Simulated assay, not measured.
Amino acid sequence: MSAPDKPKATAPSSRLLYLGVGAAATLVIFGACAFYFATLRVHRDTSDVVAVSVTSKACEPNAMSVLAGDRTFEITNKSDRPVEWEIVDGVMVVAERENIAPAIKETLKVRLAPGTYEVTCGLLSNPRGILVVAPSREADAQPARATTRSFLGPLSEYKFYLDRQSGSALRAAQDLAAAIKAGDLDKSRALYRDGRVSYDRIEPILYRFSDLQNKIDPAPSYFEKGQDDPAFVGYGRIARGLFERRSLEGLSPIADGLVDDLTALNTRLKAMKMTSDVLADSAARFSSLLSRDGLPEENADDHERRLAELDANLDGLGKLVVLLDPVLNTVNQELARKVDVALSDVRAILAKQKASAGQPTSSGGASADRTQLARAFAVLAESLNAVPSAIGIDANGT
């Protein structure tokens, strides 16, 4: 019996072969397209962060263009001193990052409306940059900011508070200028303290007028020669003469300039449009600033005076919290409670340090006190930074 024939292998049809090759090619093309679009997506996401460098002379780039809406800027300090970077609309600061240390990067998130803005670039003597913000669908689709209806009472009261405190600061500055001209050092020192307290109480709002703030109470680090720079004027230059050098020499023109700048500040505050973000945004910004940079140095010669000024700052911040409290309680009672507790903690710690000011303290004890106060301010800042979104307000740059 013969063995059965083995079945012959059937060659695949040419049609199936073509289909297989076509499918493989399609997968390759699809994969390439997916990779391409993924690459585009990554590029688009990273392009949402606008990189800016601040050198000793200017910003790089010094002219920028972005779309309106929520934007993030990454600011790198390429100079050899701490710098600030601000977006300015006329005389109003829209958003800012202060005291960026050399070689450090800071991010700033801000909601921008269409328009043309200026940008400050490190030293006050440096040329300003330009930021052009174009209209966008994103900005058009964003929800409207909270109306001022529920803030009418608080805003009216804060307007009165600003007018009273700024007026007091101006009158004290006028009397200070007269006392300096009369050669009365003791009276000048007392008038300085009185006027400075009134000014410090309205400082939470003054970031909106940075051009005047940088004349009235400038930071020495923002000037090429620090405290010895001719452009370093205002309270800082006067305090150096009155308390460090115990001399009135050269202070008369500085005091006259302070009067002029406080007069201009009074005029602007009276004309300032009070909107719902003034209270929440100012409280959030200023609490963050104090937690980072606003504490007196340990064992400094003017430590007691600086604690008094910080206490006045806290009075101004407390005024904002009191005015915000009724609005916040209607939407988030737990957050309102956290803010109140945090503010009370800061007040208690600061009161204790003021009471012990002037008494002998070890360097370790002074450092611990400053650390404790810094932590308390950080907790307060964290709570206040949550307030704008809780009540439906976008707080730019916090």
Rank of each mutant, 00 (worst) to 15 (best):
A271G: 11
L242T: 10
A219Y: 06
V278P: 00
I254G: 02
P218N: 06
D256T: 12
I254C: 11
R268F: 04
D261V: 06
S291N: 05
L242F: 05
E249Q: 13
P220K: 02
G241S: 08
D256P: 04
T263V: 10
L265E: 07
L248A: 05
L295Y: 03
K215L: 14
A300G: 14
L289D: 10
A284P: 01
L262Q: 09
R305F: 13
V278E: 10
R306E: 15
R240G: 11
S276W: 00
L265Y: 08
L269Y: 04
L269I: 07
E244G: 02
R292V: 10
P230D: 07
P296C: 09
D302R: 13
N266T: 03
F286A: 01
R292L: 14
Y222Q: 13
D277S: 13
P230V: 04
G250L: 08
L289V: 01
R245N: 12
L265I: 04
F232H: 12
L279I: 05
G250R: 09
V278W: 07
M272Y: 13
I238Y: 10
F286D: 07
P218E: 08
S288C: 03
Y235N: 06
I216E: 08
P253Q: 12
A239G: 09
G257W: 06
D277R: 07
F243L: 06
A284L: 03
D228T: 06
L290N: 04
T275H: 12
Y222C: 00
P253S: 12
D256G: 06
F223R: 07
P296N: 11
A219K: 12
I254L: 13
K225I: 00
L248V: 03
D228R: 13
V233S: 15
V259K: 08
L262P: 02
E304C: 14
D281R: 13
D256F: 02
A280M: 03
A300N: 08
G241Q: 11
S221L: 04
R292D: 14
L251H: 05
A264Q: 15
D261R: 13
L269K: 00
V259R: 09
F286W: 10
V233L: 15
E224M: 10
I254W: 03
L307P: 05
P218T: 10
A231F: 03
G250H: 09
F286Y: 15
M274L: 13
A219H: 02
G236I: 06
A239D: 14
P296I: 06
V233K: 15
F286R: 10
I238H: 10
E297K: 15
A283D: 01
G236S: 07
A300E: 14
L265R: 08
G226A: 11
L269T: 01
S252N: 10
R305M: 14
G250D: 04
H303D: 11
D229T: 09
E297F: 12
A300H: 08
T267D: 15
R245F: 09
I216Y: 03
A264D: 15
L248R: 06
F232E: 02
V233N: 13
S252I: 04
G226Q: 11
D260I: 04
L242H: 03
N266F: 01
H303P: 00
G294F: 06
S252P: 01
N214H: 11
K270C: 00
R305V: 06
S291Y: 05
N214A: 07
A219T: 00
L269M: 10
